[in-house]
Design a protein around this nucleic acid. Structure first.
Lengths: 340, 340
DNA sequence: CGCCGTGACGTTACCGGGAACATAGCCTGC
DNA sequence: GCAGGCTATGTTCCCGGTAACGTCACGGCG
């Protein structure tokens, strides 16, 4: 907004001169030192605000000999979904001589708030950004926030603003639906994730498109929230046999909830209804019945993301996107339809 | 080992003077510049080696204007076990104005190698260290590696060298065993995690001690590897009804594998055998049967760990350790013994 | 034989903050 | 009326690296 003022990032000195004080005064204001006149403080803070100044954490760390960073060692993390992608991003980054700072959604809030997350990360100094399991709304916000910051988003669609890498979600959905069709199912429902999530959307579209191509009836998708609880809720909504013979669930957790809900309703899987999940969690092969699902190679995905990012950072960015093929894993939860 | 040489950490200049060159030459050697005579390079590297010199990443970042750090945003991570502790450590650290660098075991290797992990973390500059889900052997190695680095280990026993925080594992085991005893069980088996893991050991000891206190028979514990697969293997080892009426599994994943294995063997849960898990994963309430388990508040644990660490870093370390109480969650997988 | 290019370093000036010390105005007390 | 002590601010130097440029010896060449 402000007419082309600063070429480079502002620093202590530049705001000091704009505020008409010395850089130490600015430093003191920022560090909440006492003995600063309120009016001076305000004057400084106004300039800080206006230039959107952020302290350089490296310089600070150098001067104070404190990094304000805590190292964490986690032995035997559980490898599930986006978490395992993060794990392998960290691993691959470490191999490439990079370190990783991550911001994850906590169970309390309703997802990461991209604005805060980016602010936090850039404040601590990053050369590149990687976004895992994004929502469409987040991507829109990121578009403006990541100006000049090499950014990779784990999503399938190409994007002029971002690097991308992904497992082919539509293909995964197609594999699941095709498997059910091969078994003879013609009424195939879908329990989707929240459709603001790109992965949820891609899986829903894959399901929809493949049914359409086969000329089958397309029921409305039920939209869950990724949790097993939401799968359970879906399943217990049917007193009698439901109006379909198979379900494609957008992830394994919801599929598990469905198995549970159906059992509570006396609906048998796979005799009455077949269920397919998505992800192939390490535990899914032990669900009862064991779960037919679409395996994603999260590990390869994380490694690929880092490879692309590092290439963009260091070399002439060769590839801007890449896609990994998922794989159908057939287990007990799917069989021919009851009417056969 | 080397007789008290350096007071402070070595830096480029100190190496340079010891090697009889200028600091720029050292810098060039370290950065693999051409135009360095092999003998000079070796001379420098020898000193670097001897002083165990590590570049200061903050200074480097300041000079190069590159942090070699990748920011990652993960939306909707799965909240399971140690992973969720890490999540809340990150969250709490962020709130306290700290950032986090983590090293996690990857599925390929056999756990984090503490020496490499600490080297990596210190190379990137950390003020403190937090170790989650540690093995006894790791703790021993860390003892010598973390000299002068405030370190918190998530473990129950007090330790003169480290800060500690934990969920009370023995109490958790006691709750599980007591619950089974209350139901009338007198033959209570245990499927343990690898006993090098402190948590596994604490749970095994809790089980053992509580059986002993009640004067019950103490069968040898079966040692799994935390995975559902290992629980399955345990369960399918019995053709007939097993020689116990209840099992306390050291985590929910192994419990799930046990449920699966018993179903494959035609052993009913809870009619033939009761099963109790540990952790209360979000999915455990949807296992079939739904799993009775011991809930750990991983979130509180992570927050507590950071609180203690930050207190140690900033204030006069008030508390050096703290313990959180677990909670028994009763579901379908436990009932009175078959002989009743 | 003097010129110039190049290899192998050394010197100096930064990067962007903060600690320590210096300074200038003002109030207080004797 | 002035020493002494605050308060609010400025100066200088330093943190530990790296970039840019300077220096010096050596060797080929016209």
């Amino acid at each position: 907004m402000s007419a082309g003022s600063s070429e480079d990032k502002p620093n202590l000195r530049s705001i000091a001169s704009l505020a008409g004080v010395s850089h130490m005064t600015v430093s003191r204001v920022l560090n909440d030192h006492p003995n600063i006149r309120p009016e001076t403080r305000e004057k400084v803070l106004r300039v800080v605000e206006e230039l959107n100044y952020q302290r350089n954490s490296a310089a600070r760390a150098l001067a104070t000999r404190k990094s304000r960073r805590i190292g964490v060692i986690v032995d035997r993390p559980v490898e599930i979904g986006p978490d395992s992608t993060l794990r392998s991003v960290e691993h691959a980054a470490r191999e490439a001589g990079y370190s990783v700072s991550s911001v994850a959604a906590s169970p309390d809030d309703d997802g990461v708030r991209p604005r805060e997350a980016v602010a936090y990360l850039t404040a601590h100094g990053i050369d590149a950004l990687c976004v895992i399991a994004p929502r469409a709304s987040s991507v829109d916000v990121l578009r403006e926030l990541t100006e000049g910051l090499p950014t990779l988003i784990v999503k399938a669609d190409d994007d002029a603003n971002f690097l991308t890498a992904s497992v082919d979600q539509r293909l995964g959905a197609t594999l699941a639906v095709q498997h059910l069709m091969d078994l003879g199912h013609r009424e195939i429902a879908h329990v989707a994730g929240p459709l603001d999530w790109l992965d949820a959307r891609a899986r829903e579209r894959g399901w929809h498109a493949h049914l359409k191509k086969a000329g089958l009836h397309i029921p409305p998708a039920f939209v869950g929230d990724w949790s097993a609880d939401s799968g359970y809720e879906f399943a217990v909504a049917f007193d009698e046999l439901p109006p379909f013979t198979a379900i494609f669930a957008a992830n394994d957790q919801m599929a598990l909830g469905i198995l549970h809900g159906f059992r509570d309703r006396g609906i048998r899987v796979p005799e009455d209804v077949s269920v397919v999940g998505f992800d192939d969690l390490p535990v899914s092969r032990h669900f009862l019945p064991t779960l037919t699902t679409v395996r994603q190679d999260f590990h390869a995905l994380g490694a690929l993301a880092v490879e692309i990012l590092v290439a963009a950072l260091e070399g002439g960015s060769t590839e801007r996107r890449s896609r990994i093929a998922p794989e159908l894993i057939v287990r007990e939860s799917t069989a021919g339809p009851r009417s056969m």
